[in-house]
Design a protein around this nucleic acid. Structure first.
Length: 589
RNA sequence: GUCUCGAUAGCUCAGCUGGAUAGAGCGGCCCCCUCCUAAGGGGCAGGUCGGGGGUUCGACUCCCUCUCGGGACACCA
């Protein structure tokens, strides 16, 4: 309908140009009105033209209206306020949305607006050093919802998890597992400050013991001989360096265990945690198309290749024995090391290789969803993309702000290493997947979010997701009443009598239903799932209000059938919308 | 210090590329189940949209500036 009005206006403006009244057309802004007294759609073009035409806005508005072609769906057009042109749509045309929704079913609201553009969304990608915590949950929910929304408007979306299975953190994990394994085998030791301390490390250690017995056991004095002191050693401020301490332990582990056995421990840790993460995400309704291993980048020589490619393009310089990418040429604030003086590639180098490979795989658009703490990383990655000859705007980096957790009014501190955190799994088990998914996407992603655990965990009606689900269940219940009371609903007769839906509650719902497809489109293209959340909340409010004000089951069979058509359409939209959010639409509550 | 996100009702937040009297939820107060699920509905109270400039017919929205918060600024991963 909006398109129709835009095209009518476009014709009218062409006419005004032909008449010499104006010279250029401004961008058309046709919007849905907030107030029914202003009609169904409004346009501010006359006011925007006032200056160039040198005439009063209302006068221009009249000229535009005079030039508008006739259209059967437009009931009347009015000038209002300072010069708004308000369009009133015929009732027949407005009501057709109900039939459209019923016949469209689950497909209603979907489109092919994006024409199958190939997109990759990479999200979560947490280091596999421990279970996902509630902070990761936001990225997971947001990424999965965005993927679903984008698919709904015709993008060809792949979801990817980048597995950081190489590097120092993973070695720290391996060392942590090994040390816990020693403890499990009755070796007494002081666990390093910098090690991973979560309970799950013991689980992994125990499974290694079950499989390999004491094959990897060494006495404590052999393990800790000549190792740098840990931070807490020596007491007080005379402690050692916790970084050197853990690095020494890693070296010692590799030495004592030998490459093969060390790899076994390493792999046991990685596999166990990665399996856990996979399962966790799957249960959260967050499916991935691809799990991309960082290690394979090095194995396939892609890191060297990326550095080489930058070198050939003249973007690499050697300084103090290290290789630097001159990222300042591409808008970064300082240059970045890609190969350290010890010959090791930096994490950034593998990131460059990774992004190079993303484009090599044919994605027309790449979306990275990162935690806000990676903000400083955006400029350098974009610089690398530019240096490799790709268009920087093909890469969108969306920063998801942290969710601050509150429990009993107190801010909860999270740390993977100290082991004191709330896992995503715990959250899911306590509040349910529906509430968790919904909560996470309620706010736009760049907004800080206060996640009140007590509130989310409470099964009370404070949880907004129930409100929307309840609207859906209520409609289902009413429909269930039909068979219980031996009543019928004739859809065909209902659609003949939609003009009986004249109550304010009814017209409000109808115009809200009419806005659904727009909301889906906007949510997807702007990457703002919260728009859909708010929409569904508003629709549910209208439904509940309608329910309290009017009886759907009615003695007047024409009105009865028409009302059932309306609530069936409403149920369909609630169902479709909740599904896009990854939230269930229960028939009973 | 630089970059970045934010500041809207007591609290948590919407406000669509500037548009007509700024909206929800929670909390507070008052009403509504002999009636399709009260996990609901109706009403009242509550706002200098952080401060100050500017652009515009018109600013919560755009620009500048200041104040106050979150976060980021490694040859770490």
């Amino acid at each position: 309908m909006k398109e129709t009005i835009e095209s009518l206006l476009d014709h009218a403006l062409d006419q005004l140009i032909a008449d010499g009244m104006i010279e250029t057309k401004p961008g058309l802004q046709v919007t849905r009105t907030k107030d029914a007294a202003h009609g169904d759609f409004t346009c501010n073009t006359a006011m925007m033209l006032a200056k160039q035409a040198g005439r009063a806005p209302r006068e221009i508005a009249q000229s535009i209206i005079d030039a508008l072609p006739d259209d059967a769906s437009v009931e009347k057009v009015e000038i209002a306020g300072p010069g708004f042109i308000n369009f009133f749509i015929t009732q027949e045309n407005t009501l057709s949305i109900i039939n459209d929704i019923i016949s469209g079913g689950e497909r209603f609201g979907k489109s092919n607006a994006a024409e199958g553009e190939k997109v990759q969304i990479e999200f979560v990608s947490a280091n596999p050093t421990g279970p996902l915590h509630v902070g990761h949950g936001r990225g997971a929910a947001y990424g999965a919802t965005l993927a679903t929304l984008m698919r709904a408007v015709g993008f060809d979306v792949d979801c990817e998890y980048y597995v950081n299975d190489a590097g120092r953190q993973m070695n720290i994990l391996a060392a942590s597992v090994w040390l816990r394994y020693l403890e499990v085998n009755e070796v007494t030791l002081t666990f390093p400050v910098n090690g991973y301390k979560g309970e799950y490390i013991y689980d992994i250690a125990n499974s290694i013991k079950a499989q390999h017995g004491d094959a990897f056991v060494f006495p404590a004095d052999e393990v800790f001989k000549d190792i740098h002191a840990d931070e807490t050693d020596g007491g007080g401020s005379n402690g050692g360096d916790k970084e050197k301490h853990i690095d020494d332990l890693i070296t010692r582990a590799k030495h004592l265990l030998g490459t093969k056995n060390y790899q076994q421990v390493f792999k046991a840790g990685l596999d166990s945690i990665l399996d856990d993460i996979r399962q966790d995400l799957e249960e959260f309704g967050v499916p991935y198309d691809n799990w991309y291993s960082e290690q394979t980048l090095a194995d396939r020589g892609l890191i060297d290749k990326a550095v080489e490619q930058l070198q050939m393009a003249g973007h690499i310089e050697e300084r103090n024995g290290a290789l630097w990418f001159i990222s300042t040429k591409f808008g970064d604030e300082k240059d970045r090391v890609v190969i350290r003086d010890n010959g090791q590639a930096t994490y950034f180098a593998s990131d460059i290789a990774y992004h190079m490979d993303k484009f090599a795989r044919g994605y027309q658009r790449v979306i990275n969803i990162w935690g806000a703490d990676h903000h400083g990383y955006v400029a350098r990655v974009k610089a690398a993309i530019g240096a490799l000859g790709e268009k920087e705007d093909k890469l969108d980096i969306l920063l998801v702000q942290f969710a601050n957790l509150y429990r009993g009014g107190e801010r909860v501190q999270m740390s993977t290493r100290s082991g004191s955190f709330v896992t995503l799994r715990e959250l899911r088990e306590e509040v349910g997947t529906d509430a968790a998914r919904f909560f996470y996407v309620m706010r736009k992603c760049e907004q800080h979010m206060d996640f009140d655990l007590d509130l989310a965990k409470s099964q009370s009606n404070d949880n907004p997701v129930y409100y929307i689900q309840y609207a859906h269940a209520r409609i289902c219940s009413v429909i269930g009443q039909l068979s219980e009371k031996q009543l019928k609903h004739d859809i065909e007769n209902g659609s003949q009598n939609l003009n009986l839906l004249t109550e304010r509650h009814e017209t409000d719902i109808i115009s809200k239903l009419d806005a659904y497809a727009d909301i889906v489109h906007k949510s997807a293209f702007n990457a703002e799932p919260h728009l859909l959340v708010h929409y569904l909340r508003e629709l549910a409010t209208l439904l509940h209000s309608y329910y309290n004000a009017h009886q759907f089951i009615n003695d007047d069979s024409n009105l009865h059938d028409a009302r059932f058509n309306l609530i069936i359409a409403t149920r369909q939209i609630l169902h479709n919308g909740l599904t896009l959010l990854g939230v269930s639409a229960p028939e009973k509550m």
